[in-house]
């Protein structure tokens, strides 16, 4: 069963602020979904290769050719806050 502490820890990893009420509701819902997912444990997957891609492609690469960059203003246009040519963010405190 997923604990409240687990939910707090995961919310922190996911950068999601959850209210007390949301925390408990989230815990309950995740618990239900995880219980459903736990049916996978019944399957024997010993020696089974994992699938990470649905189509078996390999070695897709591009040549090392420099293309023109995008106009600086276009790349900054969506910024919620900026200082001239730079994106601006509130002060950084490590976690």
């Amino acid at each position: 069963m997923i604990s409240r502490d687990d939910v707090v820890q995961v919310a922190r990893l996911a950068r999601l602020e959850l209210s007390e009420a949301e925390l408990e509701r989230m815990r309950r819902q995740l618990d239900g979904i995880l219980a459903y997912i736990d049916q996978l444990k019944a399957l024997d997957v010993a020696g089974v290769e994992p699938t990470s891609h649905a189509v078996p492609l390999t070695n897709v690469m591009r040549e090392d050719e420099a293309a023109p960059c995008w106009p600086q203003e276009e790349m900054l246009a969506n910024a919620p806050d900026r200082a001239g040519e730079l994106f601006r963010v509130p002060r950084i405190i490590e976690d």
Partner: peptide, 25 residues
């Protein structure tokens, strides 16, 4: 007050319940 709080609140306010649920999951 700082970046982590800004991002956490932005994501809390910007995402709906289903998206949050799946991000958490």
């Amino acid at each position: 007050k700082d970046l982590i709080e800004m991002s956490s609140r932005t994501r809390a306010a910007g995402f709906g319940a289903e998206v949050k649920r799946r991000i958490m999951l």
